[in-house]
């Protein structure tokens, strides 16, 4: 009720309040496994209901393909891996998360790495910190698969650590780098390990990737990306000022089906914008939002869209 008064809406003002039967809430009422996004497919067609998901997969796999084209086919467009790379022999790109660790460990990198780190830093500062997580990071494919399977199997509950664990972990990663004088986190970092493994060979790193999949599937819902990953926490820091944001600009059409909450990798970021809790504009400004656009896809009412942080309009 409180939420409705802050947004200045009443239940009677909404055009449609019928909860769709296969949505999370509708399925819960009928006691069956929910199929979030099902209404969106019926309302918008399969393609439009998967638009951002397909674009995101194309981005993730395309970036991976650029890295793999060299070792597999000898087309050396990009050399290296996500930790540091050289594109077409001129453009250096370096993960600023690694440079932060390196500086904490007391080493000063060469100009190429600093320049490359600066370019990447500027990109994510400008466009959106956790765009890395949803559009680039290969672990996203693994944890999305675990989340999908969890929804399909109707697995409920589980025990995830607090969401702030990752921020503490990021701090401690730097502390440990300084104390040991080495990039200690890179011994176990699944993010760089998976990407490097795909390009240079895995060894036993499959175990760590499989462990994350099983952890997310069986123990902690969205446990790795949403609660533990310090690299994601680092990119969330950059997302505090970035431009590209999701807006619930047609939130008055919301029929409370809860599908967006079911598919969102960081569901706590939706409520303030959608329900006007603690803010009156419909923008999702929380830096934890990965701007994956899945909420845009699964909403049968087209409540969400991707826009800039300056667009606070509501329709």
């Amino acid at each position: 009720m409180n939420a409705q008064t802050t947004t200045g809406q009443t239940a009677s003002a909404r055009p449609e309040r019928k909860v769709p039967p296969t949505s999370v809430r509708g399925a819960a009422m009928r006691g069956v496994v929910a199929r979030p996004g099902h209404e969106a497919i019926e309302a918008k067609g399969w393609l439009r209901a998967h638009k951002w998901l397909l674009l995101r997969r194309a981005s993730q796999l395309g970036i991976l393909a650029l890295f793999l084209a060299g070792p597999w086919f000898g087309w050396w467009i990009v050399k290296g891996n996500l930790s540091s790379s050289l594109t077409l022999g001129v453009l250096p790109l370096t993960d600023p998360f690694l440079i932060a660790q390196q500086l904490a460990a007391g080493q000063w990198p060469y100009r190429e790495a600093l320049l490359g780190g600066g370019i990447v830093l500027a990109f994510y500062l400008l466009l959106g910190g956790r765009l890395f997580c949803s559009w680039v990071c290969p672990v996203n494919l693994v944890t999305d698969a675990a989340a999908w399977l969890r929804r399909r199997l109707g697995l409920k509950g589980g025990k995830a650590p607090a969401g702030s664990t990752r921020h503490w972990l990021f701090g401690f990663v730097l502390v440990i780098a300084a104390v040991t004088g080495s990039l200690a986190w890179e011994w176990v970092n699944p993010v760089s390990m998976l990407h490097r493994g795909l390009i240079f060979g895995f060894g036993l790193a499959w175990g760590i990737v499989g462990g994350i999949f099983l952890y997310d599937l069986l123990i902690a819902p969205r446990g790795w990306c949403g609660h533990l990953c310090p690299q994601g926490a680092f990119y969330a820091l950059l997302g505090r000022v970035s431009l590209v944001k999701v807006s619930a600009d047609k939130r008055r059409d919301c029929n409370d089906c809860m599908d967006c909450f079911a598919v969102c990798p960081e569901p706590q970021v939706i409520r303030p914008a959608l329900k006007g809790v603690g803010q009156d504009h419909p923008l999702i400004l929380d830096a934890e939002c990965t701007t994956c656009g899945r909420c845009v896809d699964v909403c049968g009412k087209d409540v969400f869209r991707i826009t800039t942080r300056f667009n606070r309009s509501e329709s």
Binding site: S84, G201, G203
Partner: peptide, 27 residues
């Protein structure tokens, strides 16, 4: 000790080794 503080494990040295001498350590 300094090497382990500096190396970002990108594999660019491996790529530019013409004789495939270098390799990146796997877990």
């Amino acid at each position: 000790a300094d090497f382990l503080a500096a190396c970002v494990r990108c594999g660019l040295c491996v790529r530019d080794c013409p004789y495939d001498t270098l390799k990146l350590a796997e877990l």
